[in-house]
Amino acid sequence: MARRRTLRPEEEDLWQSVARTAQPLHPQKSPSLDQLRSPLPTESSQKAEQPEPIRTFRVGERAQTVLGHDLSPSISDSMTRAPLRMDAKAFAQMSRGKLSPEARIDLHGMTLAEAHPELIRFVLNAQSQGLRLVLVITGKGKRMEDSGPIPQRVGVLKHSVPQWLRLPPLAPAILQVAEAHLKHGGSGAYYVYLRRSR
């Protein structure tokens, strides 16, 4: 990148003579030489926007946090957007609670380390027995105070079970997963529609 230098007096005279003979392409938009040489406006001449004053904070006072922020769609939303892979008539009956599950597992009170192998065992055994619709009860989770800047999910099992059902070794055995009807547990349970065992 070339360094800029100031013009010597003879170069300045030459530049002025050339500039007087030049015709501007856009006369109304081209600034004059005086405008180009004018100093930059100072801070006092500019109208600076005053920032909003910061509210005083006392030691021991709680910070105000925005509640209800969620960065990803809810489990219900992601399940309703999932493509339908089972018979539409059977799915409609299942969603309205008209089909009763042939087996159920309740994961209430289990840790993630306990619940994951239990779920795998339950689903694979149900498929090997020729069952088609099973119910997985996770519970809705306890709502706790969310005082941190990062949103906290309610119900660890409620959010982990659908992910486990999409991963091996369970994914090949499952045709559809949907939130249960109210009479079977509502948002605290999932219908798992299994593929036929081969």
Rank of each mutant, 00 (worst) to 15 (best):
D70L: 09
L71W: 13
S72M: 14
S72T: 09
P73G: 11
D77G: 11
D77N: 14
R81Q: 14
P83M: 10
P83W: 02
L84E: 05
R85T: 12
R85F: 14
A88G: 08
K89D: 15
A90W: 01
F91I: 03
Q93T: 05
M94S: 06
G97A: 08
S100N: 12
E102T: 08
A103Q: 11
A103F: 07
R104A: 11
R104D: 05
I105F: 06
D106G: 01
T111K: 08
L112R: 09
A113Q: 11
A113E: 11
A113Y: 04
A115F: 03
P117N: 00
V123P: 00
L124H: 01
A126Y: 01
S128L: 15
Q129A: 15
L131F: 13
R132P: 02
V134E: 00
L135E: 04
V136E: 00
K140I: 10
G141V: 07
G141T: 06
K142D: 03
R143E: 08
M144E: 11
E145Q: 14
D146E: 12
D146M: 03
S147I: 06
S147C: 05
P149R: 09
P149Q: 09
P151K: 00
R153S: 08
V156I: 11
K158L: 09
K158D: 03
H159F: 05
S160H: 11
S160W: 02
P162L: 05
Q163Y: 14
W164L: 00
P169W: 04
P169R: 07
P172Q: 04
I174Q: 02
I174F: 03
L175F: 01
V177F: 12
A178E: 13
A178Q: 15
E179T: 15
E179L: 07
H181E: 13
L182N: 06
H184M: 03
H184I: 03
G185M: 09
G186M: 13
G186T: 08
G186R: 05
